[in-house]
Write a protein that binds this DNA or RNA. Sequence first.
RNA 1: GGAGAGGUGGCCGAGUGGCCGAAGGCGCUCCCCUGCUAAGGGAGUAUAGGGUUUAUAGCUCUAUCGAGGGUUCGAAUCCCUCCCUCUCCGCCA
Length: 428
Amino acid sequence: MLDQKLFRQNIEETAAQLARRGYQLNTTAILALEEERKVLQEKTQALQAERNSKSKSIGKAKAAGEDIQPLLKEVDGLGDILKQFEQSLSELQHKLSAILMEVPNIPHISVPNGKDENDNQEVRRWGEPKSYDFDILDHVAIGEKLGALNFETAVKISGSRFMTLSGDLARMHRALIQFMLNTHSDVHGYNETYVPYLVNADSLRGTGQLPKFEEDLFVIQKHEETGQQFYLIPTAEVPVTNIVRDTIQLSEDLPLKFVAHTPCFRSEAGSYGRDTRGMIRQHQFEKVELVQVVRPEDSHKALEELTAHAEAILQALKLPYRVMNLCAGDIGFSSCKTYDLEVWLPGQETYREISSCSNFEDFQARRMKARWRNPESSKPELVHTINGSGLAVGRTLVSILENYQTADGKVEVPEVLQSYMGGKTVIG
RNA sequence: GGAGAGGUGGCCGAGUGGCCGAAGGCGCUCCCCUGCUAAGGGAGUAUAGGGUUUAUAGCUCUAUCGAGGGUUCGAAUCCCUCCCUCUCCGCCA
């Protein structure tokens, strides 16, 4: 959520910055509502002040043993008028906040102009795509050849966009999770965290998935008696970042660095026909997520660091990748700046997203009321939040299958995973 | 599932209809005193929003005592619903 002050003071400037990401701010509608709000709020507050002062004098008169009948007559009817004003004001404020909740974040100055992914800027590359002296397979063919990756069984059990893994492949999948968690907690200083996979709507509003993107989420049917509503998490970002919702952090406790492994559930509504083959786009996948909660002045440095932490995993696995600075038109709703890590997939002869690292600045923090006490002002101020995948496990497995395949249809085990695989150096 | 007790500021904790945005304590900030340390004295110290202001400060108004409704001229306090925490019993991976 953006600061409401921007809408009162710099709405044109704000609209211009939002236009960069292709979002058209309806300034006339907002200005009109703002004007109405101002009048209504002033009037309502004046009435409240009147009621308060008159009620006070009634109290005094009563204590002094005076006749309060004439005073009661004065406030007669005030309550009803006030109630009407309060109601219209609250309706108007809800209308305004509903608009505000759907306005995306403002892109950072360092975010390049552009409309879509074609305008993203390559920042750097690491590693050389290998050349193969045999006909290479994609991960689906390799996995099926190993007899360890099965989509048909998953269709039977659940439906499309699910998979089953077995044997060494299932183990490598788990090994990846262990390796990533260990590296981030032992080497990069993140605090390993276990979180709920079912969350409430407040949490999703906090990180920005709601109200705008409900169709992307799996929703658990509302509990009949309690009316309790749960959503399956689309990313660990939601439960982990919401750890600091409604809190005031001490300056000396910042930055907070969390790492969590969770499954992620996405409806993929609107991506029919995209990546239907293979495990690139699934309804359920595992991810190791990095989240940082930092002082505002540190957030852009923290984004660089966090991105490097995700890159370290790719480097350890010796997987070639490139880093993209997403253009204004391609960054996510809540993001102020995003780096995507794209890993080389020989089977597709292309780089594919395997991690997305974003600085949200105070956008999520404002929605969450996540604050810290700034020693300079001694006031609570909004923190900045950063997160990134470190990494998407399924896609990492895909890239290992494709990059580490051998001429005889087997797959080498990356060196750093071997100790997690009982010393195995090759599977198949 | 049954029975009970609670939810108040950064923290602890008082407050059962009116000068209560909230005593007291802790913590924190500033000042004084003390030649170090320890201790003592004084003052200040919630958040959000509106108005005023070029803006900040200031001033002022409003809201907020788990959340939402209600009663009342007036609610932290009374009533209703919900959420959460704790204790005991039962059940359970």
